[in-house]
Amino acid sequence: MSLIRLTRRAAFGLFGATLLAGVAPASAQTVIRIAVTPGPHAQILEAVKPIAAKKGIELKIIEFSDYVVPNQALDAGEIEANSFQNQPYLDNQVKDRGYKIVPVGLTVNFPLGIYSKKYKSWAEVPDGAKIAIQNDPTNGGRSLLLLQDKGVIKLKPGVGYKPTVLDIADNPKRLQFIEIDAAQTPRALDDVAAAAINTNYATQAGLDPVKDPILKEDPKGPYVNLLAVRAADKDKPWVKELVAAYQTPEVKAFVLEKFKGAVLPAW
């Protein structure tokens, strides 16, 4: 059974239990199901949860292990919000899949890193080495832009934020790029010279996003993460309250203390 169906059953069960208890749903807190990826996004939402409760919102945090299902579930109405993606990724999803999903507030930034189990610095990576990058246009393109920024490769002019390996104009070290699912990049470290790994997956794999990368992205740029909802819901009162609960001094302090610079508040 799919996670989306399980989510639906859980929601109906909650609704039914409320009715059986003789309490009208309107008298309870507003229940908001919000999808996250495991790791920092989920941990941060746990810190948001008690703040949201004071604003009349009961957060039901649902973890998905990839970057595809959270938008599918949101667009299908199985959840009310998600917190896992940046603007370029959302733009790509909306363009490719026709989702009516919009951003409503900035959350945090996860500077991307290039990691290696075999080499302690990028200078040690040999010519012709295999480098794993994400196979989705946004994250894979982000990794290529990082490598260009560090002088490893050159991309064709005008490629924007979603270049592919076909847009590489100059590759002096003759690197071989292996494109795999973003969630699998930490597992690839045993088989490649280095891998571009998103911070949430790096922390899940026990990597230190501050100390371990042999190359690291500049934290400035378009890759700030965001809260997203369906376009039809964007003006509902609970959306404003959810954003306000997230963008608090308490949550900012939690992020800075918990992640020690691996995750940065963006508000």
Score class of each variant (00 low, 15 high):
residue 2 S to R: 11
residue 2 S to K: 10
residue 3 L to G: 15
residue 5 R to L: 15
residue 6 L to P: 02
residue 10 A to V: 08
residue 12 F to W: 11
residue 15 F to E: 15
residue 18 T to M: 14
residue 21 A to W: 00
residue 22 G to V: 06
residue 33 R to A: 14
residue 44 I to T: 04
residue 46 E to I: 00
residue 49 K to Q: 12
residue 51 I to G: 11
residue 65 S to T: 11
residue 70 P to K: 06
residue 71 N to K: 08
residue 71 N to T: 13
residue 78 E to S: 10
residue 81 A to S: 10
residue 83 S to F: 15
residue 85 Q to N: 13
residue 100 K to T: 08
residue 103 P to A: 12
residue 103 P to C: 10
residue 112 L to S: 01
residue 117 K to M: 08
residue 117 K to N: 13
residue 121 S to D: 09
residue 132 A to Q: 14
residue 135 N to M: 12
residue 146 L to T: 11
residue 150 K to D: 10
residue 152 V to M: 09
residue 157 P to G: 03
residue 157 P to V: 02
residue 166 L to H: 00
residue 169 A to H: 00
residue 171 N to V: 07
residue 171 N to D: 11
residue 172 P to D: 01
residue 173 K to I: 04
residue 180 I to Q: 14
residue 182 A to T: 15
residue 187 R to K: 14
residue 194 A to L: 05
residue 200 N to Y: 11
residue 200 N to S: 15
residue 200 N to I: 06
residue 206 G to P: 01
residue 220 K to N: 15
residue 221 G to K: 02
residue 221 G to Q: 05
residue 225 N to T: 08
residue 225 N to G: 14
residue 226 L to E: 07
residue 226 L to K: 06
residue 228 A to L: 05
residue 232 A to Y: 04
residue 232 A to H: 08
residue 234 K to A: 02
residue 236 K to Y: 08
residue 238 W to S: 09
residue 240 K to F: 07
residue 240 K to C: 05
residue 245 A to I: 03
residue 249 P to S: 07
residue 251 V to Q: 07
residue 253 A to Q: 13
residue 254 F to H: 03
residue 257 E to L: 09
residue 259 F to C: 09
residue 262 A to N: 00
residue 267 W to H: 12
residue 267 W to C: 02
residue 267 W to I: 06
